[in-house]
Amino acid sequence: SPEEIKAKALDLLNKKLHRANKFGQDQADIDSLQRQINRVEKFGVDLNSKLAEELGLV
């Protein structure tokens, strides 16, 4: 269901964000992850996106 997909995506992105902060990645990478999280919260996951591929939806 779209809600489950959204939850999985947010979980994955939050893990990536945590790792980025923990290991001191570029601020641009961290900002990009934050924008992705905001986009998923607002609009859900686009099944044509790279994120959908990472989640194994495509």
Rank of each mutant, 00 (worst) to 15 (best):
N14T: 12
A7D: 08
A9R: 00
L13P: 00
Q27G: 07
A20N: 03
I30A: 05
E54Q: 07
D31S: 06
G24M: 07
D46K: 04
L12D: 03
F23D: 14
L10D: 00
I30Q: 04
L12M: 09
L57K: 04
Q34T: 11
A9E: 01
I5E: 03
I5V: 10
A52Q: 03
A52G: 04
A20K: 04
H18G: 10
K22V: 14
L51Y: 04
F43Y: 13
E41I: 13
R39A: 14
S32F: 13
K8T: 06
R39E: 15
L57G: 03
K22Y: 10
D26S: 14
L17R: 02
N21M: 15
E3T: 08
G44V: 00
Q36Y: 04
N21W: 05
S1M: 07
D29S: 14
L10H: 01
K16N: 03
R19F: 14
N38C: 13
L12I: 13
V58N: 11
F23W: 12
N48R: 09
H18Q: 14
F23E: 15
Q27C: 07
S32E: 15
Q34S: 06
K16E: 06
A9D: 01
E53H: 11
A9S: 01
R39V: 13
F43M: 09
G44K: 00
D29E: 15
G44H: 00
V58S: 12
L47F: 09
R39L: 15
E53K: 13
G44R: 00
E53G: 07
N21Q: 15
I5K: 03
K8R: 14
D26F: 06
D11Q: 08
F43E: 11
K15A: 12
E4S: 11
N48V: 05
I30E: 02
A7I: 12
R39N: 14
A28V: 10
D11S: 05
L12P: 02
L55G: 01
N48M: 10
A28I: 09
L17S: 01
L47R: 03
D46E: 10
P2W: 14
G44Y: 01
L51K: 01
G24S: 07
I30W: 03
S32V: 09
I5P: 02
V40Q: 00
D46G: 04
L17M: 08
A52D: 02
L12F: 14
L17W: 02
S1L: 09
G24V: 05
K50N: 08
V58H: 10
L47E: 07
K42Q: 14
V45D: 02
V58D: 08
A52Y: 09
N48C: 12
Q36R: 03
G24D: 07
L10V: 04
D26G: 11
K8H: 07
I30H: 03
S1K: 08
L57A: 04
D26Y: 05
K22F: 12
A20T: 03
S49R: 01
F23P: 06
G44I: 01
D29I: 15
V40C: 02
A20D: 03
N14R: 15
L47K: 04
S1F: 09
A52L: 08
K50D: 12
R35A: 14
A52M: 08
I37C: 01
D29F: 15
L51Q: 02
D46M: 05
L13N: 00
N14H: 15
G56K: 06
L55H: 01
R35T: 10
G56F: 06
V45H: 01
G24W: 06
E3R: 07
E4L: 10
F23S: 13
K42F: 06
E54L: 09
Q36F: 05
N38Y: 05
L47H: 06
D11E: 14
V40N: 01
S49E: 05
S32D: 14
K6Q: 06
D11L: 06
A7Y: 08
D26W: 04
E3P: 06
L51F: 07
A7P: 01
L10A: 01
A7F: 08
K16F: 04
D46I: 05
I30D: 02
A9K: 00
A9P: 00
F43A: 05
F43L: 08
E54V: 06
K42C: 12
D46F: 03
N48S: 12
D46P: 07
K42R: 12
G24P: 11
D29P: 03
P2C: 15
A28Y: 10
A52K: 02
A52E: 02
K50G: 09
E4I: 11
F23K: 11
N21S: 12
L51W: 06
L12W: 11
K50E: 13
L13D: 00
I30V: 09
Q36E: 13
I37T: 00
A9H: 02
N48F: 08
D31K: 08
D26N: 13
L55F: 03
Q36T: 09
A20R: 02
E53L: 13
L33S: 00
G24N: 09
A7H: 10
S49T: 07
Q34L: 15
Q27H: 08
F43V: 06
V58R: 10
L57R: 03
K16L: 13
